[in-house]
Write a protein that binds this DNA or RNA. Structure first.
Lengths: 347, 347
DNA sequence: AACGTTCTCGTGAACGTTCACATCGAAAAG
DNA sequence: CTTTTCGATGTGAACGTTCACGAGAACGTT
């Protein structure tokens, strides 16, 4: 484990100059004779010298490291956001600590104390968010640390937020079903203390009201985003009331819903039309292929990283509170279109 | 952006001692009078002092940072491995840079040069691996950097490898179908240059041969792990030959396969029995619920991280080349069992 | 009463870089 | 030929911490 480090002084010695001159060619700063620069470059290559980011950080007080914090790593939506954010960060010269999986008592992701010690320059919380009264997580975060969240704690002083058009997405899905002639449209939300759930349901209600319909509470189901909960909520709805359409507010729950409908012998889309939310890649392979509201998760991650980096560098960014569009993707489960074979490439 | 850092000297001044004494209480090293230690602790709390990991790293030459490199972030299997690895790393006091999404010309993930500069102590490559002749990635990695891969480049000098029992999994799936009386069993592999594909197919062949059957090349399909490719490969198989069972070597492809079978009017499991591989969480909600070979991905990530950290600390680890078990999970798509309602919780 | 121990704490150096400034030489200007 | 100017390079300090020492005080020992 003796990893003898090659330092800038070794390079200087090899090239017969002082360490400062080497530093100058490394940073392309200040004048240095062409002849010496090639000599130094040769020494660098010969010794395979790699500057120490640690030492640099110590003097510059900058680490170029971001922290990405998430509650649920392996959920596709979250993973995609992280992927986009990490990619954008890398493009801008930042590295990302990623941490996730641990949740506090209220479901919020947990910060590792390691995060703050390691001089993370900014933090991105990838989490779809609980309602206003539960922000315990922010107490663990230094107040002066640039912070961006995804659709979480919008408008909170000190935190910037980006998200998707949840309300519009919900409205779009519901309008589509209304346009197809459905009048009794059930819906299954995620946990109602979460913003995304509230917003998607608000879109649902808006669409109904615009058509002069009231929201019938018998038609409102609630799950926890999991397929199992979608399955359960659908069975409850079926037992409780009649409906000809179902708007499930994420695709995983929709998968459970389709399962429940199949079991009960309700044909989709003929007897019940179904629309989902998220547009996860497997959606064209649902039975039947799912009409759903697309979420640009990758782009959301990129946007969030961009905003965070701008914040770190003190650049006013217009991205704060940006809401990315959520177009409806029509497939077969809503009955609006004849069947097409699935596309040849995923994602 | 003026983040005026509280240093150990500030704490020392506040407590009326030297910086060294503060360092002693921080590291619980050396004797320090009880009275002064509480005084210093008070100063630490009052100033909200957080030691600089950067400065520490500079002197200790240790960063306690791992690099997790992946090719495909948002694939469930990969994400789960990373999640497990990150969790285990955190438990052992390590933070993890995660980087992914970029692939080289041969499909291998790409290392960021930032990785090595940042004094990553070890690298975990989460990638299911291509065949022997494509190891371009290792050339970018310093030879003395501890390296662990997942089922990739096993036996290569300098890299430790963990994985799952792919051969046994493939055998188990095929044996199950044989035991149910099937004799013409088709299979769809991933890209054949990948280890996982080769191994799973080898398991398939072994099971057939143990029963005295030959491998019929007409029954061999190949995809790229995506649902779309599973769909395509299944259509090709259906057009080409007859079979009563299908072993698809990952669940995403299986999803496409089910879709293709449905379209062609082949009932599952009555006309064609299907078995998958991976046991992703949505598997119970496939139509029909998919019998599949379980992969302990989370545990695999934990194991890999443990191995990597042991390597870093120069501890001989017995985990190298460990292969985690891959039990068969029987659901409905193979026709072996009556239908049970999906479980109430995912993952 | 003088001395060795044991506690407790402080000083200087080092980790690998960059920054601010000083220095040196030579070319340009008078 | 002297002075100015500027290009090229070197020196000291600093970033925040730990490590290897060393020093003083309190205590007991003979």
């Amino acid at each position: 484990m003796k990893r003898q480090r090659v330092t800038i002084k070794d390079v200087a010695a090899q090239a017969g100059v002082s360490y400062q001159t080497v530093s100058r060619v490394l940073n392309a700063k200040g004048e240095v004779a062409e002849e010496t620069r090639v000599r130094i470059q040769a020494a660098i290559d010969a010794l395979e010298y790699r500057p120490s980011a640690i030492a640099r950080s110590l003097v510059s007080q900058r680490t170029h490291v971001l922290g990405l914090l998430t509650a649920d790593f392996s959920d596709y939506t979250h993973a995609r956001i992280i992927e986009g954010a990490e990619m954008e960060a890398r493009r801008r010269g930042y590295l990302a600590f990623v941490s996730g999986g641990e949740r506090g008592p209220d479901g919020e992701p947990l910060t590792s104390p390691l995060f703050t010690q390691h001089q993370t320059e900014g933090l991105l919380i990838v989490y779809h968010g609980a309602s206003r009264d539960q922000y315990t997580i922010f107490e663990q975060i230094p107040r002066d640390l640039p912070l961006v969240t995804i659709g979480y704690a919008p408008g909170r002083p000190g935190v910037a937020t980006v998200g998707v058009q949840n309300v519009e997405g919900g409205r779009r899905a519901t309008e589509h079903l209304l346009r197809l002639g459905h009048r009794r449209i059930a819906t299954i939300s995620g946990p109602m203390q979460m913003y995304a759930s509230q917003e998607r349901r608000r879109g649902y209600a808006k669409a109904l009201q615009a058509t002069g319909l009231d929201v019938d509470s018998a038609l409102l189901g609630e799950g926890d985003w999991s397929s199992a909960s979608g399955y359960r909520a659908t069975r409850e709805l079926l037992a409780r009331t009649e409906f000809t359409a179902l708007f499930v507010q994420n695709d995983r729950m929709a998968m459970g819903a389709l399962q429940a409908l199949r079991e009960q012998g309700r044909r989709v889309p003929d007897e019940v039309a179904v629309v989902g939310f998220d547009d996860i890649p497997s959606t064209p392979y649902f039975d039947p292929p799912l009409t759903t509201v697309h979420q640009p998760t990758y782009e959301l991650g990129e946007l969030a990283a961009r905003l965070l980096i701008d914040l770190i560098n003190g650049q006013p960014s217009s991205a704060d509170l940006t809401r990315l569009p959520t177009p409806l993707v029509v497939r077969r489960s809503c009955g609006a279109e004849a069947y097409r074979p699935p596309p040849s490439s995923e994602r």
